[in-house]
Nucleic acid binder design. Sequence first.
DNA 1: GCATGATCATGC
DNA 2: GCATGATCATGC
Length: 447
Amino acid sequence: MGGSVEFDYEKSSVSSIVEFSRRLSGKSLAEVVFIPREIVNSTNKGDLGSLVEAFFFGHKPGNEQGPDFPEAGLELKTTGVIQDSKKRFRAKERLVLTMVNFETLVEEEWATSSLLSKCGVMLILFYLYEKDRPVVDRRFVLEPMLHRMLERDWRVIQADWEKIRQMVRDGKAHELSEGDTLYLSACRKGAGGEREALRKQPFSPQGAKSRAFSLKPSYINVLIQGHPEADVLGLGHTATIEDAIARRLERFIGLAVDEIAEVFEVPQGPKGNKGFHRQLVLKMLAAGGNSVPELDKAGVELKTVRLTASGRPRESMSFPGFKFMGIVDEVWEESVFFEKLEKKFLLMAFQPDVNGKEIFIGAMLWNMPFQDRLEAKRVWEETRRRVIIDATDLPKISESSVAHVRPKGKNGADVIPTPQGGYHLRQAFWLNATYIGGIISSSLQTS
DNA sequence: GCATGATCATGC
DNA sequence: GCATGATCATGC
């Protein structure tokens, strides 16, 4: 299998390299070039990129600092995709760009940053991830994608980069979370686990987990879907997503829910329609359309918060259910609750006015602060501990200022197995109404 | 007014 | 068919 290729591309030409890479389309690396047997047997995922570089492009390893093709200023990335239930391709994980160097980042400027000089122009090759298949046998799918950071989404990515730099300058490298930023994030990268050595950061004695710049899976997903560039939020007119959201929603502040519903012809639906406010909010954000790619790219969690007259949310905020038998074998950082709490949230707030008419009072982008994530972790671990002992006795709302556990099922008969050998109502994690109320009132004018 | 348990419309 | 986000219902 696999013949030899001549490396007939122009090293200094981006388009020539991209054209050449198309020879991989629909094939695996081993189908296109000869790979020694001992390498074929490797399943180390990190290897495919360097194997493509070495065997397909005929590159010698090395070149630590800059892009893989220095003469063309082009960085090569290979990344895995999987197919969802509808056979659409989705990113298997975030696209890791380059390690964050806490010491040098704080001295850098975006235009001359090491990130931009290395990854400013990327050729992204997508392969179908199949767990048990050796990397060299994984098939390249989709078309090779050329991504120019300065042409696409640079406003948001630059703001993200500056946010990360600011956190390191503030001595908060150890607090970094994916939810701090929108498209570009500082993801954990390294040995992982409890034994991982922490790195030094320049403005705090606290050690920090090693991190890499990455593009979020949600961002890659929107790229993959290949929709034409859209500017639904009007980013062309503003510096940041925050500003764009504020501009878009300004016109609705103080308007009654039924007035807004009329504008967008959103039906109240049958009595008991629990998605009405959410449908409304989507229309407001999408200016009558059905999606906001800018928010999709950032993986923003849209949440509606309906306050009582006194400013407390009417309800706590629910998250996906968990299984008793599943949580027992999980670790916090791989749990669904953790993944959700690492996200950026767009909280859309409503409150009755003096006449009792419910109005839209504003929105805020929010992600959970470090200390509160630690508290959520405590509740999660306490839940896990107690599920093992007695799955019917889990953390109540009074036990934490941040989160609690409560049923979430179809009905009272919706029970699932417990480690005790019995069955109990399906449960979920919730963020306390009072906690959410505090967040809203810290930023929005409530009555 | 709030904690707790129960339930439902929706979209995929 | 089912998970999800959200709301309803009850009792104190």
